[in-house]
Simulated assay, not measured.
Amino acid sequence: MLVWQFEDPVRALSSASVGGGFSTPAWLLNIGVPHDYSRIDLDEHAAKIAAGRSLSGPGIAMFTAVDVTRAEHACFEGASVSATVGVTKPTWAADPEAGHALWPGTINLIALVPVALEPAAMVQALLAMTEAKTQALLEAQVPGTGTASDAITLLCSIAGPAQRFGGVRSRWGHRLAMATHAAVQQGLAAHPGRAR
């Protein structure tokens, strides 16, 4: 697993199943699981893992069948992104045939910016990152906008005046999009077989 611990307080916005939403986490985990992982008690599983690492307080846990040692990292003008990229079963967001099937393969994105962002700007920034991820997939001719289990977490400072905008043409939204695009590109290029 990949572990982040935050000595200085950070604000997070996450789509993770454990600790998702807006929060002020003390830690974050990107946990590698088997391809046939089917547990639904994710809170309990994450809590046990966190306790085993002596992590206390609120946290965020993301899960992936990707080998997390294959994480790709990219930075762009102060914005940094860590990506674990698995696309064995890409899917289109609007797919009438998809139903509620469980798909292996996950793209987990963890991003950090050294400035404070207003809540709406954090939402905008997550959208910018999602668009950049999808752009990288389409450029690599992956037939989908992502996978059914993708997750994303954005972490920002709580110090100083909060930035009002986070969209693709804002300063930090643009930087996050560039870093996300690079990290996902790197993940796809490093593992072209996509059997993760």
Rank of each mutant, 00 (worst) to 15 (best):
V33G: 09
I49H: 05
H73V: 09
A71W: 02
R39A: 11
L29R: 13
A74P: 01
T64K: 03
G57D: 15
F63Q: 07
T24I: 10
D41R: 05
G32I: 06
A101F: 03
G86S: 00
I31M: 12
D36Y: 05
V87S: 03
D67M: 07
K48H: 11
P58T: 15
V87W: 00
L55G: 04
G32D: 11
A65G: 07
V81H: 10
L42I: 06
L102A: 09
D67N: 14
S23H: 04
R70E: 14
A71K: 08
A93K: 04
G99K: 10
R53Y: 12
A26M: 14
G99E: 08
H100Y: 12
R39C: 02
A98N: 12
A94K: 09
G78T: 03
R39Y: 00
G52D: 06
H45Y: 14
A93T: 03
T106K: 06
S38H: 13
A101G: 11
V66M: 07
D41P: 03
W27H: 11
H45G: 05
P104H: 01
E44W: 01
E77V: 00
K48A: 15
A101T: 04
I31S: 09
P58S: 14
I40S: 14
I49C: 07
V85N: 07
T91S: 15
T84P: 06
W103F: 14
T24D: 12
N30D: 14
D95G: 05
A98C: 08
I31Y: 12
S54V: 07
A98L: 15
T64G: 09
S54R: 15
T91A: 15
E77D: 15
E72A: 12
A101W: 04
D43K: 10
S56V: 14
A79Y: 02
S38C: 06
V33C: 09
E97Y: 04
P34K: 13
A94G: 03
A83K: 01
K48Q: 15
F63T: 01
W27Y: 13
G99M: 08
A50H: 13
F63Y: 10
A46D: 07
C75M: 11
I107C: 04
V66C: 09
E97V: 03
E44K: 04
A93G: 12
D43P: 04
A74E: 04
H35M: 13
P25D: 09
G86E: 01
P34R: 12
A50E: 14
P34A: 04
P104W: 02
G59D: 03
F76R: 13
T84A: 12
H35C: 07
P90L: 13
M62P: 01
S23T: 00
S82P: 00
L28I: 08
T88C: 05
A74K: 01
A26N: 15
S38Y: 02
A93I: 00
A46T: 02
T84V: 14
A83H: 00
R53F: 11
V81A: 10
V87I: 04
D41W: 00
F63L: 11
K89T: 05
A93Q: 06
V81Y: 07
L28T: 06
S38R: 15
N30L: 11
M62T: 02
A111M: 06
T69D: 10
G57T: 13
L102N: 06
V68Y: 00
T106D: 11
G32Q: 15
S80D: 15
A79F: 02
T69N: 11
P34H: 07
L29V: 13
H45W: 09
R53E: 14
P25K: 12
